[in-house]
Amino acid sequence: MNISVLLNMVPDLVEELEIDASGTALDTQWMRFLLSESDEHALEQALLLKDRHGARVTVLALEPGDAEEALFSSLAKGADEAVKITGVSPGLSKRVVAMAFKEALQATPSDLILTGVYAIDDLDGHAAGLLAGMLDLPFVGVTRSVEPVNGRVVVQKEYPGGFAAEVEVGLPAVIGVLSAPQPPRYVPVARIRETRKTRTLTERPVSVAESLPGLTIRRLFKPEPAERAEMLTGTLGDVAGQIVTILADRGLVR
């Protein structure tokens, strides 16, 4: 089975987000990026399928957002090939991301396309579903496990309220992963550094329109805190005391 895993880099929220002078885009100059969490799970899901059933795993990522680290890290974890997609700056558009992946995938025939079902910077869509719609492929999103069965896959799809269903999907298909059945594997930094020396990335230029058809970003802004919590301050000991008083007043410690 040929599995393609699509990786998206997202802003690291540990850092303060900065909005650029236009007021309609993020200032990415000093921004730190990391691999989107559900993509980490998509990669883990692909590597689990490779470990258990054998597969060839190709990871693909768009160049902007320091994708190289994530691509080399994927190789170090066991991916067979890593493709860096160049020639596109999607900004905040997941539709542009999906179009770029669609074009890049033409050179990587895939039975199964796995990607995270969402990213924290989604605005004009979620790349997994958009791509499936553009490719007219079967699609299930918000999944927590993928197993091959007789040339198809059976996925566990989450429904609201803690419910889920096992859905059988013919291949090729796009699956939007929320969680893998086990936590994403860890790879030591030294191994990634080693991989940078011994492996290369496949560069794949694409050319897609970068406008958001039908959409205009009018304003990007930080929320005004409406009713914020009352912040408890003082020494840690004071704060602990204040919390206990609040709890005692409500009869929660006796």
């Binding site: 539709r95 979620h126 579903g129 958009l130 719609g133 299930v140 999103g141 039908g214």
Partner: peptide, 23 residues
């Protein structure tokens, strides 16, 4: 913006070329 709605909205936006805003 649920585990059903996010699937459907993105799929339809992709297949029908309709603009979408999520969340």
């Amino acid at each position: 913006a649920t585990s059903l709605g996010m699937d459907l909205a993105a799929l339809l936006a992709g297949s029908m070329g309709m603009p979408l805003i999520v969340n």
